[in-house]
Computed example of a mutant assay.
Amino acid sequence: MAKQLVPIDELQLGSYVTGVASQTGDVVIKHAGWVRSELLIATLKQKGVSAVFIDPEQQLPPPKELPAAPAESVTPVVKPRTDFMQECARTELTLQSTRQQTAVTFEKMAQADNVDLTQPSQNCDKLLESSSRNPQALLYLQQVLQEDDALLRHAIRCACLMAAFCQTLQLPEATAQQYTLAALLHDAGKAQLKQLFPQEQPTDLAALPYSLALLEQSACTAEVLETVSGHLAPLAEQSGGAPLLAIVNRYANLQELVEQNKLSGPQLSAQLLKSAGQSLDARLTQQFLLGIGLYPPGSAVRLKSGKLALVLENHPKYADKPKVKLFYHSVHRHHLPAKVLDLAKLPEEQIVGAADLSEFALDLRQYF
Rank of each mutant, 00 (worst) to 15 (best):
M1P: 06
A2H: 14
V6L: 01
E10D: 14
E10R: 13
L13Q: 04
G14L: 05
G14W: 00
Y16Q: 10
G19K: 09
G19D: 08
A21E: 12
S22M: 09
G25T: 02
V27G: 00
I29Y: 01
S37L: 05
Q46Y: 04
A51R: 07
A51Q: 11
D55S: 06
Q59V: 02
Q59E: 09
P70K: 07
A71T: 13
A71P: 01
E72A: 11
P76Y: 03
V78F: 07
D83Q: 12
A89Q: 14
A89S: 13
T94M: 02
L95A: 03
T98G: 04
Q100H: 05
T102E: 00
V104K: 15
K108N: 15
N114P: 00
V115A: 05
P120R: 10
Q122W: 13
L127K: 09
L127D: 02
P135F: 01
Q136V: 00
Q136G: 12
L139S: 11
Y140F: 14
L145F: 04
D148H: 06
L151S: 06
H154R: 11
A155N: 01
C160T: 09
A163Q: 10
A164P: 09
F165Q: 07
F165V: 07
Q170L: 12
Q177M: 10
Q177F: 06
Q178W: 03
T180R: 11
A182W: 01
A183F: 03
L184K: 05
D187F: 03
K190S: 08
Q201T: 15
P202F: 03
Y210F: 14
S211W: 01
L212N: 01
E216V: 12
A219P: 00
E223K: 14
V228F: 00
G240P: 05
G241Y: 06
L244C: 07
L245N: 04
N253S: 12
L263W: 03
L268D: 09
Q271V: 08
L273F: 09
L273V: 08
A282W: 03
L284D: 00
T285V: 08
K304S: 15
G306W: 10
A319W: 10
K321A: 14
P322M: 04
K323E: 12
L336A: 10
L341Q: 12
L341D: 07
K345G: 00
L346D: 10
L346T: 12
E348H: 12
G353Y: 09
A355R: 08
D356G: 03
L357S: 11
L364W: 00
Y367K: 01
F368P: 00
